[in-house]
Design a protein around this nucleic acid. Sequence first.
DNA 1: GAAGTATGTCAACAGGACTGACCTAAAAAA
DNA 2: TTTTTTAGGTCAGTCCTGTTGACATACTTC
Lengths: 164, 164
Amino acid sequence: MADHPESPTSFEPSDAALRQAIELLFYAYRDFTSDPDAILNEYGFGRAHHRVVHFIGRNPGITVSDLLAILKITKQSLSRVLSQLVREGFVRQQQGSRDRRQRLLHLTEKGAELDHRLEAPQRVRFAAAFREAGPEAAAAYRKVLAGLINADERARILAAIDRP
Amino acid sequence: MADHPESPTSFEPSDAALRQAIELLFYAYRDFTSDPDAILNEYGFGRAHHRVVHFIGRNPGITVSDLLAILKITKQSLSRVLSQLVREGFVRQQQGSRDRRQRLLHLTEKGAELDHRLEAPQRVRFAAAFREAGPEAAAAYRKVLAGLINADERARILAAIDRP
DNA sequence: GAAGTATGTCAACAGGACTGACCTAAAAAA
DNA sequence: TTTTTTAGGTCAGTCCTGTTGACATACTTC
């Protein structure tokens, strides 16, 4: 079995490299989520609240069903978290004008503030990692992570996160 | 592209790049865990069982406290999952010879089989992502993800996952 | 008018994390 | 040797977050 480690057209990652990649993702995610988790705790919130606040912040006016498609959870799960955020004044709902059944979701000022607080440590972490690894590595990160996303959604998601 | 606006010694990632990086990690992790989750469901297990089986598989003879340090959960949380795995014959415990208080953990054959089943789809996913992105990107992925790990543990973890 | 859609709600349940308290046995230190 | 620390286990209760299933309402579309 001859391998061609330099040939770009037939690069086959080793078993060890794959195992390392899997473990790195575990450790990185574990620590990456630990900072916001601590902040959420102050509010009596959990990781689900973070995700909801984040994606409403990035997509003001998003509908409930679009949010469900992003999070891939049931509407009952979302409902509990979302109604809590609405009740406590972090999210406001606005009736859709085109379709009045829709509740278009927006962050309140309080919600935007929470969003930024939660995002800050994650930005810091990535900024340090990217600075250390260099600009090419940052681009490569993007390429690899995109490759982990389900193929049928990849293009749509990349387009969505690429918006200004 | 000879002249970059950023010199390599003072690369400062943009806000947009950081936001993208954060979202990519969410989407990638969401899909990356979905395949093993489906398999675990067959056994009546959850994601916690996967982590335990994986790290015992990678570290045969690991002690309970070392496993706790990796997972960063409480021993009560681990206990439920671990005792279930032992009871159902996926993990066996062996008294330590040097220190007889220790219960050194090993996978049984059944456990090793489950480990491989759970790992397979994740290997496939990474193999595809690395093949597509190329060997340099694979190395860059490793660098960036390592940079996300808490600094005080980074060296130890990198050494651990680097073993053959 | 009928059918489908967007959203919400109630109820019941499971997994997996937590805290706090308490226990045993063995090793290490005084 | 006595004391303290360490490795591990266990019981009880709580919280967050996910699940299914059933049902309701308002609205759009055909």
